[in-house]
Simulated scan of single mutants.
Amino acid sequence: MKLLYVFDAYCGWSYGFAPTLAEVARRHPELPVEVVSGGLFTGPRAVPIREFGYVQGANAKISEMTGVVFGPGYERLIADGSFVMDSADAALGMAVLRQAAPERAVELALAVQAAFYEDGLSLSDPGTFSRIAAAAGLDAVAVGAALTAPAARRAAEADFRRAAALGAQAYPTLLAQDGDRTAVLAVGHAEPDTIDTLLEQFASARTGSMVV
């Protein structure tokens, strides 16, 4: 059995889910976690953040529900509304980091979101991912070089297709998979105890009553 975490690095609710994801991973070291990037802000949706008038209100709700803090660096970055969130760039960087240390995908996904939502670093800037790599003890030079390789863009696009194939219609979505059975554990927000309960039910189920 494994977990599938479908998120978007530019999704505030995915950032709010970070503490839950970290706790679930801590409780279940025996379960590998596959991290898949979604394409929330691509194509016509990759526009200045001022076009999304709900952002500040949504962030306040996310903080209230999850306890995460949107850092001053992030607040400065979006202050004039001109910053463009491009999920394709974010997914490309996540794919390269994941390739560098696949067993640390959860840790790296959380670091990517912290870079944006806490430090206010653009996920369209290759330097952001080199910085994350260095902080994680990875080869920052190799990560920087990989960002410009065509394979990285193909990996990001493959993630978008994978997210669609998994049926993820909102971010974040956490699923459990065991052979040909897949169950949704969380969409948007959930507490670790709730996820534990669903995991136990999924692991012990002999029928497809929870399967999606």
Rank of each mutant, 00 (worst) to 15 (best):
M1V: 13
C11H: 11
W13C: 12
W13D: 11
S14T: 13
F17H: 10
P19S: 06
T20G: 07
A22E: 11
E23P: 03
E23W: 03
V24I: 14
R27D: 04
H28T: 09
E34K: 07
S37Y: 03
E51G: 04
G57A: 10
A58P: 02
I62V: 15
E64F: 08
E64P: 02
G67P: 09
G67H: 07
F70V: 05
E75I: 04
I78N: 02
A79N: 04
F83L: 08
S87I: 07
A88C: 04
L92G: 00
M94I: 03
A95D: 01
L97V: 03
L108V: 05
Q113C: 06
A115K: 03
Y117D: 05
Y117I: 05
D125Y: 06
D125S: 05
G127S: 06
R131Y: 01
A136S: 15
A142W: 08
G144R: 05
A145H: 06
A149C: 01
A149D: 15
A152N: 00
A155S: 04
A164K: 15
G167W: 14
A168H: 14
D178T: 12
A183C: 12
G188H: 13
E191A: 14
T194M: 07
T194E: 13
D196K: 07
L198C: 03
Q201G: 07
F202I: 05
F202P: 03
S204M: 02
S204H: 06
T207G: 09
M210L: 15
